[in-house]
Design a protein around this nucleic acid. Structure first.
Length: 505
RNA sequence: GGUCCUGUGGCCGAGUGACUAGGCAGAGCUCUGCAAAAGCUCGUACAGCGGUUUGAAUCCGCUCGGGACCUCCA
Protein backbone atom coordinates (compact mmCIF):
# COMPACT_ATOMS: atom_id res chain seq x y z
CA UNK A 1 0.00 0.00 0.00
CA UNK A 2 1.54 3.22 -1.08
CA UNK A 3 1.28 6.44 0.85
CA UNK A 4 -0.34 9.64 -0.22
CA UNK A 5 2.20 12.17 -1.41
CA UNK A 6 1.33 15.76 -2.15
CA UNK A 7 3.24 18.60 -3.69
CA UNK A 8 3.68 21.22 -1.01
CA UNK A 9 4.11 24.75 -2.35
CA UNK A 10 5.69 25.69 0.95
CA UNK A 11 8.66 23.36 0.54
CA UNK A 12 8.43 23.15 -3.25
CA UNK A 13 8.57 19.40 -3.25
CA UNK A 14 6.43 16.33 -2.92
CA UNK A 15 5.97 15.12 0.63
CA UNK A 16 4.26 12.19 2.28
CA UNK A 17 0.97 13.41 3.69
CA UNK A 18 0.77 12.90 7.40
CA UNK A 19 -2.12 14.51 9.21
CA UNK A 20 -1.65 16.22 12.55
CA UNK A 21 -4.27 14.03 14.16
CA UNK A 22 -4.26 10.47 12.81
CA UNK A 23 -7.21 9.73 10.53
CA UNK A 24 -8.45 13.28 10.65
CA UNK A 25 -7.70 16.06 8.24
CA UNK A 26 -8.48 19.75 8.25
CA UNK A 27 -8.61 21.51 4.91
CA UNK A 28 -9.20 25.17 4.18
CA UNK A 29 -9.83 26.32 0.62
CA UNK A 30 -10.23 29.93 -0.44
CA UNK A 31 -13.74 30.32 -1.77
CA UNK A 32 -15.32 32.77 -4.15
CA UNK A 33 -15.79 36.50 -3.87
CA UNK A 34 -19.49 36.80 -4.45
CA UNK A 35 -19.51 40.17 -6.09
CA UNK A 36 -20.15 38.64 -9.50
CA UNK A 37 -20.72 35.48 -11.45
CA UNK A 38 -18.21 32.67 -11.31
CA UNK A 39 -16.38 31.83 -14.51
CA UNK A 40 -14.64 28.77 -15.88
CA UNK A 41 -11.40 29.67 -14.14
CA UNK A 42 -13.16 29.56 -10.77
CA UNK A 43 -14.44 26.08 -11.46
CA UNK A 44 -11.00 24.58 -11.34
CA UNK A 45 -10.02 24.95 -7.69
CA UNK A 46 -13.45 23.92 -6.50
CA UNK A 47 -13.44 20.78 -8.61
CA UNK A 48 -9.80 20.06 -7.81
CA UNK A 49 -10.28 20.35 -4.07
CA UNK A 50 -13.54 18.47 -4.24
CA UNK A 51 -11.57 15.55 -5.63
CA UNK A 52 -8.97 15.94 -2.91
CA UNK A 53 -11.71 16.08 -0.29
CA UNK A 54 -13.34 12.97 -1.72
CA UNK A 55 -10.05 11.13 -1.96
CA UNK A 56 -9.05 11.91 1.61
CA UNK A 57 -12.42 10.56 2.73
CA UNK A 58 -11.88 7.51 0.59
CA UNK A 59 -8.58 6.94 2.38
CA UNK A 60 -10.49 6.91 5.63
CA UNK A 61 -9.81 10.40 6.90
CA UNK A 62 -12.54 12.20 8.70
CA UNK A 63 -12.14 15.52 6.94
CA UNK A 64 -13.29 18.93 7.98
CA UNK A 65 -13.45 20.91 4.78
CA UNK A 66 -13.85 24.65 5.23
CA UNK A 67 -14.41 26.90 2.26
CA UNK A 68 -15.23 30.53 2.83
CA UNK A 69 -17.46 32.97 1.04
CA UNK A 70 -15.94 36.40 0.64
CA UNK A 71 -18.95 38.64 0.92
CA UNK A 72 -17.32 41.72 2.40
CA UNK A 73 -15.76 43.73 -0.35
CA UNK A 74 -12.07 44.20 -0.16
CA UNK A 75 -10.11 46.97 -1.73
CA UNK A 76 -8.92 47.28 -5.18
CA UNK A 77 -5.86 48.90 -3.85
CA UNK A 78 -4.50 50.07 -7.14
CA UNK A 79 -7.43 52.47 -7.36
CA UNK A 80 -6.89 56.10 -6.59
CA UNK A 81 -9.82 56.04 -4.27
CA UNK A 82 -10.34 52.98 -2.23
CA UNK A 83 -13.36 51.26 -3.56
CA UNK A 84 -15.27 48.27 -2.49
CA UNK A 85 -16.23 45.88 -5.24
CA UNK A 86 -19.43 44.79 -3.65
CA UNK A 87 -20.65 48.23 -2.69
CA UNK A 88 -19.90 49.58 -6.11
CA UNK A 89 -21.69 46.80 -7.87
CA UNK A 90 -24.63 47.07 -5.52
CA UNK A 91 -25.07 50.69 -6.47
CA UNK A 92 -24.86 49.77 -10.14
CA UNK A 93 -27.43 47.02 -9.86
CA UNK A 94 -29.59 48.99 -7.42
CA UNK A 95 -29.45 46.25 -4.87
CA UNK A 96 -28.73 46.13 -1.20
CA UNK A 97 -25.17 44.87 -0.78
CA UNK A 98 -26.40 41.79 1.00
CA UNK A 99 -29.00 41.24 -1.68
CA UNK A 100 -26.28 41.24 -4.29
CA UNK A 101 -24.09 38.95 -2.26
CA UNK A 102 -27.00 36.57 -1.76
CA UNK A 103 -27.73 36.52 -5.47
CA UNK A 104 -24.21 35.51 -6.42
CA UNK A 105 -23.88 33.12 -3.52
CA UNK A 106 -26.97 31.32 -4.73
CA UNK A 107 -25.61 31.22 -8.24
CA UNK A 108 -22.32 29.87 -6.99
CA UNK A 109 -24.05 27.12 -5.05
CA UNK A 110 -26.11 26.26 -8.09
CA UNK A 111 -22.92 25.84 -10.13
CA UNK A 112 -21.25 23.76 -7.43
CA UNK A 113 -24.21 21.43 -7.38
CA UNK A 114 -24.18 21.17 -11.15
CA UNK A 115 -20.55 20.09 -10.96
CA UNK A 116 -21.54 17.54 -8.34
CA UNK A 117 -19.11 19.04 -5.86
CA UNK A 118 -19.77 17.94 -2.32
CA UNK A 119 -20.68 20.73 0.07
CA UNK A 120 -17.92 21.82 2.39
CA UNK A 121 -18.47 20.95 6.03
CA UNK A 122 -18.35 24.61 6.99
CA UNK A 123 -18.85 27.50 4.63
CA UNK A 124 -18.21 30.60 6.71
CA UNK A 125 -18.81 34.10 5.44
CA UNK A 126 -16.56 37.09 6.00
CA UNK A 127 -19.47 39.24 7.12
CA UNK A 128 -20.39 36.65 9.71
CA UNK A 129 -16.93 36.82 11.26
CA UNK A 130 -16.27 40.53 11.67
CA UNK A 131 -15.88 40.07 15.40
CA UNK A 132 -13.22 37.39 15.00
CA UNK A 133 -11.38 39.49 12.46
CA UNK A 134 -11.38 42.54 14.70
CA UNK A 135 -10.14 40.37 17.54
CA UNK A 136 -7.26 39.12 15.47
CA UNK A 137 -6.33 42.62 14.31
CA UNK A 138 -6.32 43.84 17.90
CA UNK A 139 -3.99 41.08 18.85
CA UNK A 140 -1.63 41.95 16.02
CA UNK A 141 -1.63 45.59 17.13
CA UNK A 142 -0.96 44.67 20.74
CA UNK A 143 1.95 42.52 19.68
CA UNK A 144 3.30 45.47 17.75
CA UNK A 145 2.99 44.21 14.19
CA UNK A 146 0.29 46.55 13.00
CA UNK A 147 -0.37 50.26 13.23
CA UNK A 148 -3.36 52.52 12.80
CA UNK A 149 -3.50 55.37 10.35
CA UNK A 150 -6.60 57.48 9.78
CA UNK A 151 -8.99 54.81 10.88
CA UNK A 152 -7.27 52.08 8.88
CA UNK A 153 -4.92 49.43 10.19
CA UNK A 154 -1.90 48.10 8.35
CA UNK A 155 0.33 45.13 8.92
CA UNK A 156 3.96 46.05 9.44
CA UNK A 157 5.66 43.65 7.09
CA UNK A 158 9.20 44.84 7.65
CA UNK A 159 9.01 44.49 11.40
CA UNK A 160 7.34 41.14 11.07
CA UNK A 161 10.08 39.90 8.81
CA UNK A 162 12.80 41.16 11.12
CA UNK A 163 11.38 39.24 14.06
CA UNK A 164 9.96 36.17 12.38
CA UNK A 165 12.62 35.40 9.79
CA UNK A 166 14.91 34.14 12.57
CA UNK A 167 12.04 31.92 13.71
CA UNK A 168 11.92 30.32 10.30
CA UNK A 169 8.89 32.25 9.10
CA UNK A 170 10.21 35.05 6.88
CA UNK A 171 7.77 37.07 4.85
CA UNK A 172 8.01 35.40 1.45
CA UNK A 173 8.46 31.86 2.75
CA UNK A 174 5.58 30.57 0.66
CA UNK A 175 6.09 32.42 -2.58
CA UNK A 176 9.87 32.36 -2.51
CA UNK A 177 10.17 36.10 -2.40
CA UNK A 178 12.80 38.09 -0.57
CA UNK A 179 11.43 41.13 1.20
CA UNK A 180 14.45 43.28 0.40
CA UNK A 181 13.99 42.61 -3.30
CA UNK A 182 10.35 43.48 -3.07
CA UNK A 183 11.08 46.77 -1.41
CA UNK A 184 13.53 47.63 -4.12
CA UNK A 185 11.22 47.06 -7.04
CA UNK A 186 10.14 50.41 -8.24
CA UNK A 187 6.46 50.37 -8.70
CA UNK A 188 4.17 53.33 -8.55
CA UNK A 189 1.39 52.68 -6.15
CA UNK A 190 -1.15 55.27 -5.21
CA UNK A 191 -2.84 55.65 -1.90
CA UNK A 192 0.34 54.73 -0.13
CA UNK A 193 0.68 57.71 2.19
CA UNK A 194 -0.91 55.90 5.08
CA UNK A 195 1.42 52.94 4.85
CA UNK A 196 4.82 53.09 6.43
CA UNK A 197 6.09 50.71 3.86
CA UNK A 198 4.75 49.75 0.51
CA UNK A 199 4.86 46.05 1.33
CA UNK A 200 2.46 46.64 4.22
CA UNK A 201 -1.06 45.45 3.69
CA UNK A 202 -4.42 46.48 5.08
CA UNK A 203 -6.00 44.64 7.97
CA UNK A 204 -8.84 47.11 8.35
CA UNK A 205 -9.98 49.91 6.11
CA UNK A 206 -11.68 53.07 7.14
CA UNK A 207 -14.97 53.42 5.26
CA UNK A 208 -15.64 56.71 3.54
CA UNK A 209 -19.09 58.19 4.24
CA UNK A 210 -20.70 56.91 1.05
CA UNK A 211 -19.55 53.38 1.70
CA UNK A 212 -22.50 51.11 2.37
CA UNK A 213 -20.88 48.03 3.88
CA UNK A 214 -19.45 49.16 7.20
CA UNK A 215 -18.97 47.90 10.68
CA UNK A 216 -18.06 49.56 13.93
CA UNK A 217 -14.55 48.86 15.14
CA UNK A 218 -12.08 50.25 17.67
CA UNK A 219 -10.70 52.33 14.79
CA UNK A 220 -13.99 53.74 13.60
CA UNK A 221 -16.42 52.48 11.01
CA UNK A 222 -14.91 50.45 8.26
CA UNK A 223 -14.46 46.99 6.89
CA UNK A 224 -11.86 44.25 7.02
CA UNK A 225 -8.95 43.81 4.64
CA UNK A 226 -9.06 40.81 2.40
CA UNK A 227 -6.44 38.55 3.90
CA UNK A 228 -7.60 38.65 7.50
CA UNK A 229 -10.86 36.81 6.93
CA UNK A 230 -9.15 33.57 5.93
CA UNK A 231 -6.81 33.73 8.91
CA UNK A 232 -9.64 34.42 11.31
CA UNK A 233 -11.97 31.75 9.97
CA UNK A 234 -9.39 29.04 9.46
CA UNK A 235 -8.16 29.56 13.00
CA UNK A 236 -11.67 29.44 14.36
CA UNK A 237 -12.73 26.27 12.62
CA UNK A 238 -9.49 24.37 12.08
CA UNK A 239 -7.24 25.61 14.81
CA UNK A 240 -3.88 27.27 14.99
CA UNK A 241 -2.31 24.67 12.79
CA UNK A 242 -4.17 22.48 10.33
CA UNK A 243 -3.31 20.13 7.51
CA UNK A 244 -4.13 21.52 4.10
CA UNK A 245 -4.60 25.01 2.76
CA UNK A 246 -5.67 25.21 -0.85
CA UNK A 247 -6.46 27.68 -3.58
CA UNK A 248 -5.42 28.91 -6.97
CA UNK A 249 -1.77 29.60 -7.71
CA UNK A 250 -2.54 33.27 -8.14
CA UNK A 251 -3.44 33.44 -4.46
CA UNK A 252 -0.02 32.27 -3.36
CA UNK A 253 1.15 35.86 -3.33
CA UNK A 254 0.16 38.06 -1.71
CA UNK A 255 -2.95 36.46 -0.22
CA UNK A 256 -1.55 33.29 1.30
CA UNK A 257 1.73 34.93 2.17
CA UNK A 258 -0.18 37.53 4.18
CA UNK A 259 -2.26 34.87 5.85
CA UNK A 260 0.89 33.18 7.02
CA UNK A 261 2.24 36.42 8.48
CA UNK A 262 -1.00 37.24 10.29
CA UNK A 263 -1.39 33.77 11.68
CA UNK A 264 2.25 33.55 12.65
CA UNK A 265 1.85 36.63 14.83
CA UNK A 266 -1.40 35.45 16.43
CA UNK A 267 -0.85 31.73 16.58
CA UNK A 268 2.91 31.33 16.39
CA UNK A 269 2.46 28.83 13.59
CA UNK A 270 2.41 28.72 9.86
CA UNK A 271 -1.31 27.94 9.68
CA UNK A 272 -1.15 24.91 7.42
CA UNK A 273 1.38 22.17 6.91
CA UNK A 274 0.60 21.50 3.28
CA UNK A 275 -0.14 24.29 0.83
CA UNK A 276 -1.70 23.05 -2.38
CA UNK A 277 -2.19 25.29 -5.37
CA UNK A 278 -3.97 24.50 -8.59
CA UNK A 279 -2.77 26.04 -11.83
CA UNK A 280 -4.74 28.38 -14.03
CA UNK A 281 -7.14 27.81 -16.87
CA UNK A 282 -5.95 29.70 -19.91
CA UNK A 283 -7.66 30.78 -23.06
CA UNK A 284 -5.51 31.34 -26.11
CA UNK A 285 -2.56 30.83 -23.84
CA UNK A 286 -3.56 33.63 -21.47
CA UNK A 287 -4.88 33.21 -17.97
CA UNK A 288 -8.62 33.53 -17.80
CA UNK A 289 -9.30 36.46 -15.54
CA UNK A 290 -11.30 39.61 -15.18
CA UNK A 291 -8.34 41.83 -15.81
CA UNK A 292 -7.75 40.18 -19.17
CA UNK A 293 -11.37 40.52 -20.18
CA UNK A 294 -11.44 36.97 -21.40
CA UNK A 295 -13.68 35.19 -18.94
CA UNK A 296 -16.42 32.79 -19.86
CA UNK A 297 -19.00 32.69 -17.12
CA UNK A 298 -20.32 29.33 -16.03
CA UNK A 299 -23.85 30.19 -17.08
CA UNK A 300 -22.53 31.05 -20.53
CA UNK A 301 -20.43 27.94 -20.66
CA UNK A 302 -23.34 25.64 -19.88
CA UNK A 303 -25.69 27.34 -22.32
CA UNK A 304 -23.19 28.14 -25.06
CA UNK A 305 -24.17 31.80 -25.07
CA UNK A 306 -20.76 33.36 -25.52
CA UNK A 307 -19.10 34.43 -28.77
CA UNK A 308 -16.09 32.20 -28.11
CA UNK A 309 -18.26 29.10 -27.72
CA UNK A 310 -19.38 26.93 -30.59
CA UNK A 311 -21.83 25.13 -28.33
CA UNK A 312 -22.75 24.65 -24.70
CA UNK A 313 -20.79 22.26 -22.51
CA UNK A 314 -22.39 20.43 -19.64
CA UNK A 315 -21.02 20.59 -16.10
CA UNK A 316 -19.88 16.97 -16.26
CA UNK A 317 -17.96 17.64 -19.45
CA UNK A 318 -16.18 20.50 -17.68
CA UNK A 319 -15.46 18.28 -14.71
CA UNK A 320 -14.07 15.55 -16.95
CA UNK A 321 -12.05 18.12 -18.90
CA UNK A 322 -10.45 19.35 -15.70
CA UNK A 323 -9.74 15.83 -14.45
CA UNK A 324 -7.95 14.90 -17.65
CA UNK A 325 -5.13 17.25 -16.71
CA UNK A 326 -3.01 17.25 -13.60
CA UNK A 327 -4.12 20.04 -11.30
CA UNK A 328 -0.73 21.75 -11.24
CA UNK A 329 -0.55 22.15 -15.01
CA UNK A 330 -2.16 24.96 -16.89
CA UNK A 331 -5.18 23.89 -18.85
CA UNK A 332 -5.93 25.61 -22.10
CA UNK A 333 -9.53 26.13 -23.05
CA UNK A 334 -10.66 25.60 -26.63
CA UNK A 335 -13.79 24.34 -28.31
CA UNK A 336 -11.83 21.46 -29.81
CA UNK A 337 -10.58 20.39 -26.40
CA UNK A 338 -14.03 20.64 -24.83
CA UNK A 339 -15.64 18.72 -27.67
CA UNK A 340 -13.01 16.01 -27.35
CA UNK A 341 -13.78 15.88 -23.64
CA UNK A 342 -17.47 15.59 -24.37
CA UNK A 343 -16.95 12.57 -26.61
CA UNK A 344 -14.41 11.04 -24.31
CA UNK A 345 -16.72 11.30 -21.33
CA UNK A 346 -19.55 9.74 -23.30
CA UNK A 347 -17.41 6.78 -24.22
CA UNK A 348 -16.10 6.34 -20.72
CA UNK A 349 -19.51 6.62 -19.14
CA UNK A 350 -21.10 4.18 -21.57
CA UNK A 351 -18.31 1.73 -20.92
CA UNK A 352 -19.04 2.10 -17.23
CA UNK A 353 -22.76 1.56 -17.80
CA UNK A 354 -21.95 -1.56 -19.78
CA UNK A 355 -19.79 -2.81 -16.96
CA UNK A 356 -22.64 -2.43 -14.49
CA UNK A 357 -24.81 -4.62 -16.69
CA UNK A 358 -22.35 -7.49 -16.96
CA UNK A 359 -23.46 -10.52 -14.93
CA UNK A 360 -21.60 -10.79 -11.66
CA UNK A 361 -20.43 -14.34 -12.04
CA UNK A 362 -20.17 -16.86 -14.79
CA UNK A 363 -22.58 -19.56 -13.68
CA UNK A 364 -20.02 -21.71 -11.98
CA UNK A 365 -18.11 -22.30 -15.20
CA UNK A 366 -15.29 -21.20 -13.03
CA UNK A 367 -11.96 -20.80 -14.74
CA UNK A 368 -12.95 -22.65 -17.86
CA UNK A 369 -11.92 -19.81 -20.10
CA UNK A 370 -10.16 -17.60 -17.61
CA UNK A 371 -7.55 -15.59 -19.39
CA UNK A 372 -4.65 -15.18 -16.98
CA UNK A 373 -2.96 -12.41 -18.92
CA UNK A 374 -6.17 -10.43 -19.16
CA UNK A 375 -6.90 -10.85 -15.47
CA UNK A 376 -3.47 -9.63 -14.67
CA UNK A 377 -3.81 -6.67 -16.96
CA UNK A 378 -7.10 -5.64 -15.41
CA UNK A 379 -5.78 -6.10 -11.89
CA UNK A 380 -2.74 -4.02 -12.61
CA UNK A 381 -4.74 -1.25 -14.29
CA UNK A 382 -6.96 -1.15 -11.22
CA UNK A 383 -4.01 -1.02 -8.88
CA UNK A 384 -2.86 2.02 -10.82
CA UNK A 385 -5.96 3.91 -9.67
CA UNK A 386 -4.70 4.08 -6.09
CA UNK A 387 -1.09 4.43 -7.03
CA UNK A 388 -1.69 7.43 -9.26
CA UNK A 389 -4.05 9.18 -6.87
CA UNK A 390 -1.50 8.71 -4.11
CA UNK A 391 1.01 10.44 -6.33
CA UNK A 392 -0.25 13.99 -5.85
CA UNK A 393 -3.74 13.25 -7.13
CA UNK A 394 -2.82 12.34 -10.68
CA UNK A 395 -6.34 12.07 -12.01
CA UNK A 396 -5.06 12.19 -15.59
CA UNK A 397 -3.26 8.89 -15.21
CA UNK A 398 -6.21 7.25 -13.49
CA UNK A 399 -8.34 8.39 -16.37
CA UNK A 400 -5.93 6.82 -18.86
CA UNK A 401 -6.22 3.50 -17.05
CA UNK A 402 -9.99 3.75 -17.05
CA UNK A 403 -9.91 4.21 -20.78
CA UNK A 404 -7.75 1.14 -21.16
CA UNK A 405 -10.37 -0.86 -19.32
CA UNK A 406 -13.18 0.27 -21.60
CA UNK A 407 -12.28 -2.04 -24.52
CA UNK A 408 -12.11 -4.97 -22.11
CA UNK A 409 -15.57 -4.21 -20.77
CA UNK A 410 -17.07 -3.60 -24.21
CA UNK A 411 -15.31 -6.67 -25.52
CA UNK A 412 -17.01 -8.85 -22.95
CA UNK A 413 -20.32 -7.19 -23.60
CA UNK A 414 -20.02 -7.72 -27.36
CA UNK A 415 -18.64 -11.21 -26.84
CA UNK A 416 -15.33 -10.47 -28.51
CA UNK A 417 -13.93 -11.57 -25.22
CA UNK A 418 -15.24 -14.73 -23.58
CA UNK A 419 -17.84 -14.09 -20.94
CA UNK A 420 -15.79 -15.89 -18.35
CA UNK A 421 -12.39 -14.59 -19.40
CA UNK A 422 -12.30 -12.58 -16.22
CA UNK A 423 -12.48 -14.48 -12.98
CA UNK A 424 -15.40 -13.70 -10.73
CA UNK A 425 -13.02 -12.00 -8.34
CA UNK A 426 -11.43 -9.82 -11.00
CA UNK A 427 -14.81 -8.83 -12.35
CA UNK A 428 -16.00 -7.93 -8.88
CA UNK A 429 -12.88 -5.86 -8.30
CA UNK A 430 -13.38 -4.14 -11.64
CA UNK A 431 -16.96 -3.27 -10.87
CA UNK A 432 -16.18 -2.11 -7.36
CA UNK A 433 -13.17 -0.01 -8.21
CA UNK A 434 -14.77 1.61 -11.20
CA UNK A 435 -17.76 2.61 -9.13
CA UNK A 436 -15.60 3.95 -6.34
CA UNK A 437 -13.39 6.01 -8.61
CA UNK A 438 -15.92 7.12 -11.21
CA UNK A 439 -18.66 8.07 -8.79
CA UNK A 440 -17.30 8.46 -5.28
CA UNK A 441 -13.91 9.99 -6.02
CA UNK A 442 -14.22 11.63 -9.43
CA UNK A 443 -17.80 12.55 -8.73
CA UNK A 444 -18.93 11.84 -12.26
CA UNK A 445 -22.59 11.21 -12.82
CA UNK A 446 -25.10 10.51 -15.51
CA UNK A 447 -26.45 13.67 -17.04
CA UNK A 448 -28.87 12.00 -19.37
CA UNK A 449 -32.46 12.84 -18.94
CA UNK A 450 -34.15 10.30 -16.84
CA UNK A 451 -34.57 6.92 -18.40
CA UNK A 452 -37.36 6.20 -16.01
CA UNK A 453 -40.99 6.76 -16.50
CA UNK A 454 -43.04 7.58 -19.49
CA UNK A 455 -40.26 8.63 -21.83
CA UNK A 456 -38.64 5.25 -21.45
CA UNK A 457 -41.94 3.47 -22.09
CA UNK A 458 -42.41 5.48 -25.26
CA UNK A 459 -38.91 4.67 -26.43
CA UNK A 460 -39.31 0.99 -25.66
CA UNK A 461 -42.47 1.05 -27.76
CA UNK A 462 -40.61 2.66 -30.66
CA UNK A 463 -37.85 0.12 -30.30
CA UNK A 464 -40.35 -2.71 -30.46
CA UNK A 465 -41.92 -1.27 -33.59
CA UNK A 466 -38.49 -0.84 -35.13
CA UNK A 467 -37.55 -4.40 -34.33
CA UNK A 468 -40.72 -5.68 -35.97
CA UNK A 469 -40.09 -3.56 -39.01
CA UNK A 470 -36.56 -4.86 -39.33
CA UNK A 471 -37.71 -8.43 -38.98
CA UNK A 472 -40.06 -7.79 -41.85
CA UNK A 473 -37.24 -6.11 -43.78
CA UNK A 474 -39.26 -2.93 -43.72
CA UNK A 475 -36.18 -0.75 -43.63
CA UNK A 476 -38.07 2.37 -44.62
CA UNK A 477 -39.98 2.28 -41.34
CA UNK A 478 -37.03 1.17 -39.23
CA UNK A 479 -34.76 3.86 -40.66
CA UNK A 480 -37.44 6.47 -40.22
CA UNK A 481 -37.70 5.69 -36.52
CA UNK A 482 -33.94 5.78 -36.12
CA UNK A 483 -33.48 8.96 -38.11
CA UNK A 484 -36.34 10.87 -36.58
CA UNK A 485 -35.14 10.02 -33.09
CA UNK A 486 -31.65 11.08 -34.04
CA UNK A 487 -33.03 14.46 -35.04
CA UNK A 488 -34.55 14.81 -31.59
CA UNK A 489 -31.19 13.85 -30.12
CA UNK A 490 -31.87 10.26 -29.21
CA UNK A 491 -29.49 7.72 -30.58
CA UNK A 492 -30.62 4.17 -31.24
CA UNK A 493 -27.90 1.56 -31.08
CA UNK A 494 -28.30 -1.87 -32.61
CA UNK A 495 -26.52 -4.48 -30.62
CA UNK A 496 -25.06 -7.83 -31.55
CA UNK A 497 -27.93 -9.97 -30.36
CA UNK A 498 -30.60 -7.92 -32.10
CA UNK A 499 -31.35 -5.90 -29.00
CA UNK A 500 -31.48 -2.16 -29.16
CA UNK A 501 -30.57 0.51 -26.67
CA UNK A 502 -30.70 4.26 -26.76
CA UNK A 503 -28.84 7.24 -25.44
CA UNK A 504 -30.24 10.71 -25.04
CA UNK A 505 -28.25 13.79 -25.87
C1' G B 1 13.43 44.91 -14.12
C1' G B 2 12.93 40.77 -10.16
C1' U B 3 11.16 35.62 -9.00
C1' C B 4 9.37 31.24 -11.12
C1' C B 5 7.01 27.89 -14.60
C1' U B 6 6.75 26.01 -19.46
C1' G B 7 7.44 24.39 -25.07
C1' U B 8 5.42 16.66 -26.35
C1' G B 9 2.43 13.61 -32.88
C1' G B 10 -3.45 17.32 -36.70
C1' C B 11 -5.67 18.97 -31.62
C1' C B 12 -5.87 18.23 -26.02
C1' G B 13 -2.77 16.23 -22.78
C1' A B 14 0.36 12.22 -19.02
C1' G B 15 5.21 11.27 -18.39
C1' U B 16 9.46 8.98 -11.94
C1' G B 17 16.94 8.63 -17.56
C1' A B 18 16.38 2.63 -20.46
C1' C B 19 10.12 -0.33 -20.72
C1' U B 20 6.91 4.14 -27.50
C1' A B 21 0.27 6.93 -21.31
C1' G B 22 -4.54 8.18 -22.62
C1' G B 23 -8.41 11.02 -25.12
C1' C B 24 -10.28 13.51 -29.65
C1' A B 25 -9.75 13.70 -34.85
C1' G B 26 -7.91 10.63 -39.23
C1' A B 27 -6.97 5.83 -42.18
C1' G B 28 -7.89 0.50 -42.88
C1' C B 29 -10.49 -3.87 -41.34
C1' U B 30 -14.48 -6.88 -38.58
C1' C B 31 -19.56 -6.94 -37.27
C1' U B 32 -24.02 -4.96 -39.82
C1' G B 33 -29.77 -4.58 -44.62
C1' C B 34 -27.53 0.37 -44.33
C1' A B 35 -25.69 3.58 -40.63
C1' A B 36 -24.24 4.38 -35.73
C1' A B 37 -22.08 2.07 -31.68
C1' A B 38 -18.45 -1.49 -30.47
C1' G B 39 -13.88 -4.31 -31.42
C1' C B 40 -9.04 -4.88 -33.90
C1' U B 41 -4.91 -2.50 -36.51
C1' C B 42 -2.03 2.00 -37.93
C1' G B 43 0.68 7.04 -37.04
C1' U B 44 7.38 6.14 -33.16
C1' A B 45 6.14 12.90 -31.27
C1' C B 46 9.09 15.30 -27.62
C1' A B 47 11.25 23.86 -29.81
C1' G B 48 16.64 24.42 -31.61
C1' C B 49 21.88 23.77 -30.59
C1' G B 50 25.57 21.82 -27.49
C1' G B 51 26.91 18.86 -23.10
C1' U B 52 26.72 14.85 -19.06
C1' U B 53 25.62 9.49 -19.48
C1' U B 54 26.39 2.77 -21.67
C1' G B 55 21.54 5.20 -22.44
C1' A B 56 17.94 11.84 -22.24
C1' A B 57 11.29 13.95 -23.80
C1' U B 58 13.25 13.37 -18.79
C1' C B 59 19.64 16.04 -16.02
C1' C B 60 23.03 20.63 -17.26
C1' G B 61 24.15 25.07 -20.41
C1' C B 62 22.89 28.43 -24.22
C1' U B 63 19.32 30.30 -27.97
C1' C B 64 14.34 31.07 -29.49
C1' G B 65 9.03 30.93 -28.23
C1' G B 66 4.84 30.93 -24.55
C1' G B 67 3.05 31.92 -19.70
C1' A B 68 2.42 33.16 -14.27
C1' C B 69 3.39 36.19 -10.02
C1' C B 70 5.46 40.89 -8.34
C1' U B 71 -1.64 45.13 -8.12
C1' C B 72 -7.67 42.81 -7.44
C1' C B 73 -7.48 37.80 -9.22
C1' A B 74 -9.27 30.67 -8.55
Amino acid sequence: MSQLTVYNSLTRKKEVFKSIIPNRAGMYVCGPTVSGESHLGHARPFITFDIIYRYLRHLGYKVRYVRNITDAGHFEEEGREAEDKISKKAVLEKLEPMELVQKYTNLFHWAMRAFNNLDPDIEPTATGHIVEQIGMIEKIIVDGYAYEANGSVYFDVEKYNRDFAPKGMPYGILSGRVLEDMLETTRELDNQEEKRNKADFALWKNAPPEHIMRWASPWGEGFPGWHIECSAMSTKYLGREFDIHGGGMDLQFPHHECEIAQSAVCNHHIPARYWLHNNMITINGKKMGKSYNNVIKLTELFSGSHPALEQGYSPMVIRFFILQTHYRSTLDFSNEALKAAERGLKRLWEGYENLKKLPDSNNGTQAANTDAALNEKVTSLLAGFDEFMDDDFNTAKVMANMFELVPVINGIKDKHIAEDALSTATLAALKGKMKTFMEDIFGLMDEQESKDGKLDSVLQLLITIRKDARNKRDYITSDKIRNELATIGIQIKDEKDGNMSYTIG
